[in-house]
């Protein structure tokens, strides 16, 4: 009797678990890029006075309170204290925007907010101020489990991102999945191949010597496989970003992370 119950329970569990496609990483085997780094780089990320990303968080904190644009409003005038109002927000991004009918990234949300509510000059992608603001906002979610892509309206875009992730591209004819699902823990030109879990963006890359967005990271992977990189803010990059975040579901946010 007992064994029959066990089998029945096991069948039920199997039915309830999300369907994994070939090559995808099971949820309990997912690891942040942090787990692939050396002890020195981990120590650099862990200590807020040695983490260079914190310099951008400080700049972002100042920008949060600065009145700008023809509306003469600061972010803080509408959103108040970021510590409470922005807690957990970045873990939900890219999020579906009803007015636009498509998902927007955190950077795009800041750009939209500046245009609509502050009537200020737009910040270009990867500009220092935009990165500082998004680092400051995402830092408020440090430790929060990622939930992006849970919104049913975002599902078609998650699926679009998944297709792009699985699609071979470039002269090297590689898809994201060929390295990040099938070959993580191995090395590429001496550097560890990670699982591509975007837990700490915007993050400080020692190679860049500055903070950078997930889009910058995706674009450099694309030029790595000799493909034509999508433009910043393009629907394809947003979809990929959304899929990657949904793939990292439940992993804690680390912003600002440090990576080699």
């Amino acid at each position: 009797m007992i064994s029959w119950r066990a089998i029945a329970a096991a069948t039920l569990l199997a039915a309830a678990a999300p369907v994994l496609l070939a090559g995808e990483i099971p949820p309990d085997a997912r690891r942040s890029g942090y787990a692939f780094m050396g002890a020195d780089t981990r120590a650099m990320q862990d200590d807020d006075t040695s983490n260079p990303g914190m310099l951008f968080v400080l700049d972002g904190e100042a920008l949060w309170a600065k009145k700008i644009g023809s509306a003469d409003k600061a972010c803080a005038d509408c959103h108040g204290d970021a510590q409470s109002s922005m807690k957990g927000v970045a873990a939900r991004y890219p999020a579906f925007d009803k007015a636009l009918g498509r998902p927007v990234t955190l950077d795009q949300r800041i750009i939209l907010c500046r245009a609509n509510h502050q009537q200020a000059t737009p910040l270009p992608y990867e500009s220092r101020d935009l990165l500082a603001l998004s680092a400051f906002i995402a830092h408020q979610s440090r430790g929060t489990p990622i939930t992006a892509g849970d919104d049913p309206q975002a599902k078609p875009f998650v699926e679009q991102g998944r297709v792009l992730y699985m699609q071979r591209a470039g002269q090297l004819n590689l898809a994201c999945t060929n390295c990040h699902d099938d070959n993580f823990d191995k090395r590429l030109a001496g550097a560890p191949i990670t699982q591509a879990q975007p837990t700490g963006y915007p993050l400080y890359r020692l190679e860049w010597q500055t903070l950078g967005s997930l889009e910058r990271r995706l674009r450099s992977c694309m030029s790595g496989v000799r493909a034509q990189a999508y433009d910043y803010g393009s629907p394809e990059l947003v979809a990929l970003e959304l899929y990657l975040m949904s793939r990292a579901h439940g992993l804690p946010m680390e912003t600002p992370a440090v990576r080699p």
Binding site: D47, D48, T49, S50, M54, L55, L58, D59
Partner: peptide, 8 residues
């Protein structure tokens, strides 16, 4: 410019 200082 922003600076981070750690002094006990």
């Amino acid at each position: 410019m922003a600076a981070l200082i750690n002094v006990p």
